[in-house]
């Protein structure tokens, strides 16, 4: 049976706008990875039709633990729009379904990445890196899904908060340490290579995979969130979350 990509994309688009959970697509039908990216692309068209503009991309499933849990051996990607930026670091809980925050390293590109992009190409094309808290918000019930569902749902992309400073990427990006605090208490720590095998390689993977799939690639001016460094933190009203990354900076948010 041929899937109706546009119909499934419209259902996820409504779920996003109405902050309503839906059942995983894979509970109802078989969804290939190619189907999932086609649904994702249809969904992005709907958001563009609503006036949103794509400003970059994001990686998911970048940790060994997540890939094992999902039964996949590759990361996935999704897209960011201008509507997802939270410039003041305030997360309105009611604007989301069941949001979680993940600390990440964000790359700002000042050159296009080609179909054979390597980690070195990414670093050469990087205007700077900054600390980031990504807000992920699965549109599926109880945040439960299989790998293709997550791709169709734009890799749970919802919003992001960036740190205040842009830095040249440190040479040891795989080894830099990160500390995540919630309400001032240490919640978790990690090093850059928690994003496998390292954050720049993850960005290179997305550039190659997106172009190979016939998607928009990663371009000059794009912001790319390279993947969660720690397990996500479920957000609650009144919560403050901060990530500090060595030689890169910090980013923080408050939930209202």
């Amino acid at each position: 049976m041929r899937l109706n990509h546009a119909e499934l994309a419209a259902e996820l688009h409504r779920a996003r706008k109405e902050r309503r959970e839906v059942e995983p697509l894979t509970d109802r039908t078989e969804v290939s990875t190619a189907d999932a990216y086609a649904i994702q692309a249809e969904g992005l068209r709907l958001r563009e039709a609503d006036g949103e503009t794509v400003i970059g991309g994001k990686l998911g499933f970048t940790s060994e633990a997540m890939r094992e849990a999902m039964g996949v051996d590759e990361p996935n990607y999704g897209w960011l729009t201008d509507a997802m930026a939270l410039p003041h670091g305030i997360v309105e809980l009611d604007a989301f379904i069941h949001p979680k925050a993940e600390p990440e390293i964000a790359f700002l590109l000042d050159a296009d990445l080609g179909p054979d992009a390597s980690a070195l190409d990414v670093l050469e094309a990087t205007a700077g890196v900054c600390a980031c808290l990504e807000i992920v918000d699965s549109r599926y019930r109880d945040f439960a899904f299989r790998a293709p569902d997550n791709v169709a749902d734009d890799s749970s992309a919802a919003a992001f908060v960036l740190g205040a400073s842009l830095r040249r990427p440190p040479a040891e990006l795989a080894d830099v340490g990160a500390a995540l605090t919630v309400g001032g208490e240490l919640a978790d720590t990690a090093a850059g290579c928690a994003v496998m095998p390292d954050p720049a390689s993850a960005v290179a993977w997305m550039a190659r995979a997106a172009l190979a799939a016939g998607d928009r690639g990663l371009r000059r001016g794009d912001l790319v969130l390279s993947g969660g460094l720690t397990a996500p933190i479920a957000l609650e009203r009144g919560m403050t979350v901060m990530v500090e990354i060595d030689r890169i900076g910090s980013a923080s948010l408050r939930v209202r």
């Binding site: 080894d175 990160a178 720590t189 090093a191």
Partner: peptide, 26 residues
Amino acid sequence: DLRLVGCRFVRNGKTVATAAGAAVLG
């Protein structure tokens, strides 16, 4: 900043965990 010194813990060539100095009492 010893809180933010990153650590990769490897067994038999496989990364088993990563962390930073803050994991030790902050």
